[in-house]
């Protein structure tokens, strides 16, 4: 898909494990030097409860439950800082068991031409066979995945979903691409030795480049 049609790009990091949500507070993050005091002061807390903490600031959204930890940003210059913050938090809380990681990439494209928009759906999934049964068939969503190669030091999969995006407003047509780069520990790993944090560190750049390459060439 052409880069000039790209309007919104987001990146999120999701950990699955066992967390204590109430530890994650703005001034705790600032005290540990993980965010600036100015950022800490600008945090808006949506909810703070022993089961869930949800807060956001200009460039970051954080949601922590007892099983799931998510950091997300829609500001590309902060993608790296989002990863640094995730790694910083779990280097401080280094005994937190984490068993899964998702590096998620989301792209929203705006199409002004209706034909191009429908043609993209046709390219991604051949609609000809459907024409026997449906009148003017259209693609709403398609999802493709691969398993991570077995020779790697972790399990996981890579999933790409292309769908009709509601983030792009009429009269334009929106196409969203959501990519889930998922990592899980091997059976003999406990998740208490920062294995997931190392996986994040080692795969962050590669994951981003792969996602960029996919969206650039998809539908060509």
């Amino acid at each position: 898909m052409k880069e000039d049609k790209l309007k919104i790009k987001t990146r999120s990091i999701v950990f699955v494990g066992s967390f204590n949500p109430t530890i994650i507070q703005p001034y705790w993050l600032a005290l540990r030097g993980l965010i600036s005091e100015e950022d800490a002061g600008s945090v808006k807390i949506d909810i703070m409860h022993e089961e869930i903490v949800r807060m956001h600031m200009d460039w970051l959204f954080i949601e922590v439950t007892k099983q799931r930890f998510e950091l997300r940003t829609s500001q590309e210059p902060f993608f790296g800082m989002c990863k640094d913050l995730a790694m910083g938090i779990f280097r401080v809380l280094n005994e937190t068991p984490i068993v899964m990681l998702g590096i998620n990439h989301e792209f929203h494209y705006s199409y002004s031409n209706k034909k191009d928009y429908y043609d993209l759906g046709d390219k991604l999934a051949n609609l000809r066979p459907w024409e026997k049964h449906l009148n003017d068939p259209r693609l709403l969503q398609i999802e493709v995945m691969e398993q991570k190669p077995h020779h790697r030091q972790y399990n996981g999969h890579y999933r790409v979903r292309v769908y009709s995006s509601e983030q792009i407003k009429q009269p334009n047509y929106g196409v969203g691409v959501a990519i889930n780069d998922h990592y899980a520990l091997l059976e003999d790993q406990t998740g208490r030795d920062n294995e997931i944090i190392e996986i994040l560190n080692q795969n962050w750049v590669e994951s981003g480049v792969k996602a960029e390459n996919i969206v650039l060439t998809i539908g060509e």
């Binding site: 790209l6 309007k7 919104i8 790009k9 987001t10 949506d46 909810i47 089961e51 869930i52 949800r54 956001h56 200009d58 959204f61 949601e63 997300r72 829609s74 500001q75 590309e76 210059p77 902060f78 790296g80 929203h108 983030q167």
Partner: peptide
């Protein structure tokens, strides 16, 4: 105004930054 915690957070897409070039 207690947010519905079961609903996925409506992320703020009104404010975003898409880079032309990023350097480290």
């Amino acid at each position: 105004n207690i947010p519905n915690i079961n609903e996925h957070y409506g992320f703020d897409f009104k404010n975003h930054f898409t880079s032309v070039q990023n350097w480290h």
